[in-house]
């Protein structure tokens, strides 16, 4: 088996699967053609993530990643949760196969999308947006990585300049 025991455990017994009615933030990343979609729901209380649920379409790695980050995020402040990186999730799972590190490891992106959604929501949205942790904006600027050779490529680049693979 090419996955770690931890990945297999989170894949076979995923934590926090489901949806939250009237969630405070919802975020979705991925697309079905590339194989993975993750949708995260959060409820927030006093600046902390009180509950988190997810739905995922994807491979074993994608399901395990979703489950792991849902556990990591629960109870954290929004600022702390925003700082969880995809790399942190992979490390917590005792690693992922190289070719899955970037394509299926979207949990942090999905969680951050849900947190951004929380700040963008109505009511006192302007005030909330001002409170948004700067890390979320920084994260949005981070470059993409080629899934095949692991080098940085500019966002929106049609192919990797090193290996020539279409992205």
């Amino acid at each position: 088996m090419k996955y770690s025991a931890k990945v297999m455990d989170h894949f076979a017994n995923p934590r926090n699967v489901g949806t939250i009615e009237n969630a405070d933030g919802v975020g979705e990343v991925g697309n079905p053609a590339c194989g993975d979609i993750m949708r995260f729901y959060i409820s927030v209380r006093d600046g902390r993530i009180e509950d988190v649920k997810f739905q995922t379409f994807g491979c074993g790695a994608a399901i395990a990643v979703s489950s792991m980050i849902s556990e990591m995020a629960r109870g954290k402040t929004l600022e702390e949760a925003s700082r969880i990186s995809n790399r942190d999730v992979a490390d917590a799972l005792d690693g992922l196969p190289a070719n899955k590190l970037h394509c299926s490891n979207l949990g942090a992106d999905a969680l951050q999308a849900a947190i951004r959604d929380y700040y963008a929501r109505n009511g006192d949205s302007a005030k909330r947006r001002a409170e948004m942790p700067p890390v979320l904006e920084e994260r949005r600027q981070e470059p993409c990585k080629c899934p095949y050779c692991d080098i940085e490529v500019p966002r929106g680049a049609p192919f990797c300049k090193k290996c020539g693979a279409k992205i």
């Binding site: 996955y3 297999m8 076979a12 994807g58 491979c59 994608a62 299926s104």
Partner: peptide
């Protein structure tokens, strides 16, 4: 509405070995 590799992994846990044309494989 489901992806091939995750089905394959669950089938393998039941000792059933098949293949898939999914990109994830």
């Amino acid at each position: 509405y489901v992806e091939g590799e995750s089905m394959l992994l669950f089938l393998d846990m039941e000792n059933i070995q098949i293949a898939s044309g999914s990109a994830c494989i």
